[in-house]
Structures are given as C-alpha cells and as structure tokens.
Design a protein around this nucleic acid. Structure first.
Length: 270
DNA sequence: CCCGATTCCTGTAGGC
DNA sequence: TGCCTACAGGAATCGG
C-alpha cells in the first residue's frame, strides 16, 4: 500500500530514466483508473522533455517542458523500469517510453491510482489544492498539529491521516508512529498536549525516513522501480501484528477499526 | 461546516 | 477442490 516512503522509493528509482529525457511514446491500455485517463494524453505529451520529478504527498509529479503528468499509485500501484521490452501483464495499465526506448511501466491491480495531465505547472493542479504540509519539512511540527487539532472532534489517528493536515501518512505509518510515540490512536486529537504532539511529529519523521532507507514497505503489491520489494515490513512494531506481544510492555497488540481502517496499538499507548 | 459512511476495484484468505 | 463471502484501503463524495 503505497504511502509516502513507497512513492519516494518509486520516484528515486524511475527518475534516472526520465529526467532530462524526451517522452517518445505513452501507451495507455486501461483508461478506467480512479479518474478516466484522457484519450488525448499520449499525443499531448509526445516529444516533450521531462525537466524533473517531484513528490507532493503521495502524488508523483513529472514536470515537462510544457505542463506535466500527475501519477498516484492508489493502494496497489507500482512502477517499474524495463530496459528490454516485456509482454504487458493483465494489470499493466500504461507505459511511459523515453527516446532511449526504456519503458516505465505502471501496474495497478485495483485501479485506485491515476494518471492525469496538467496543462500548466502540475503543482497548481486542482487535485493538489488543499493538501497539507509535507511531513519531512520544518513546517511539520508539534505546534502545527496542536494548533490544527484544537478545532476538531475526531480521534488522533484519523487526524494524522487527514491529507489536509499532513500528507503522505497512511494507515500503516499512522499506527506505527502513534505506537512509537506512546499515543493511543483512539484518543481525541483535541485532548493531546503540545509536548506529546512534538514527540509525535518527530516520530513520524523518523519512521518515514527509516522506511525510505529500507525501500518502503511491501505487504502485497509494492515493488521499487527495479522490481525489488521494500524491507520496512521487518521493522513494523504493530501493523498487522494483532496478538503479538508488545516489545515495550509485553501485552498483546490490539486491533480495532477506526474510520473503517484496521488500527493496531498496544494498551501501553495512552 | 463537520464528520462518519459509502464508493470505486480485484486478489487473497478463510469457511464450509 | 471449488464456490462463496469478507476483507484490504486512498481519497473523493455523499448524507445526516
């Protein structure tokens, strides 16, 4: 399930095959993704040069010398670089092909991802408006969380996963960060002290940075651009570990559903 | 406006 | 073995 570290891993893997290259062909096999892929997309970008790649939350922005592409991996998306042509499989929905003939192939069994074309700067696209702060910047800190949480009547895990507050923290990293920060995910977000939010913000940064170092988390589908899985799963403390004893206190890890999402935590989180 | 519920999709796992 | 159902979830949208 791609969250920020998986998207970052993907961008690092595909960038060398896109930045500074000319797009020679875009082959779209499946237009019915989260939002329909516009039919004219391939002709619009043909011959344009990729100036740079950028991540914004869980979106991949491919800046072109005119406009850009916006890609989201949804929950089962991945992108791989093929140095030699391969027969596309069932869920390989589109290819970006550069002028060297290298193929960047998008696979997404559940079709929750997207491929959008932006006429202007992709950062200004409507889909990206209203996104919260980047967690790996100085703008993301305990003071911000404390301030934004005061107006809300939701539990802290839902708050932390709200992309209008902070981007990129999905279900896995929310459970992990709250565990390491010692905060109960069910606690109301408005009833957490500034000090604890400062600890939470620092923990989120550490967890995301470590996962990026490990190439992300592979639970089912995710692979990096070279086809290799991520190794952060070995570092997960609570996610998917119901009943396993907590490293911190020895009590069994609990599973609850919060906002229709599986949530893992231990009784030692208060 | 706020927040919980629903929706899209398909592979996988578990029950019988 | 095979059929059926439940479940996983990012994020937009719906509904109260």
């Amino acid at each position: 399930m791609p969250e920020l570290p998986e998207v970052e891993t993907t961008i690092r893997g595909i960038s060398p095959f896109l930045e500074g290259k000319v797009l020679r062909n875009v082959i779209i096999r499946e237009r019915r993704l989260r939002w329909p892929v516009v039919p004219e997309l391939a002709s619009l970008v043909d011959g344009l040069t990729v100036t740079r790649l950028e991540r914004r939350g869980k979106y991949i922005l491919i800046h072109l010398d005119r406009g850009g592409l916006i890609i989201h991996l949804g929950m089962s998306g991945s992108m791989r670089v093929l140095l030699e042509p391969e027969e596309p499989q069932k869920h390989d929905h589109f290819d970006l092909i550069n002028s060297d003939g290298q193929i960047i192939r998008y696979r997404d069994p559940r079709k929750f991802g997207s491929l959008l074309y932006s006429k202007g700067d992709p950062r200004a696209h409507l889909r990206l408006s209203g996104l919260g702060v980047e967690p790996l910047t100085e703008a993301f800190d305990g003071d911000l969380l404390y301030k934004l949480s005061k107006k809300k009547h939701i539990c802290v895990k839902t708050f932390l996963m709200d992309g209008r507050v902070v981007v990129g923290v999905g279900n896995i990293y929310a459970s992990e960060s709250l565990h390491l920060a010692g905060i109960n995910p069910l606690r109301k977000c408005s009833r957490i002290s500034l000090d604890r939010y400062r600890r939470l913000a620092e923990t989120v940064k550490k967890v995301l940075e470590l996962s990026i170092q490990r190439g992300g988390t592979t639970l089912q589908d995710f692979v990096g651009a070279d086809g290799s899985p991520g190794y952060f799963e070995q570092e997960l403390m609570v996610y998917g570990r119901e009943g396993v004893v907590c490293d911190n206190c020895g009590e069994p890890i609990q599973k609850v559903v919060i906002s229709q999402r599986a949530t893992y935590y231990c009784a030692c989180q208060t």
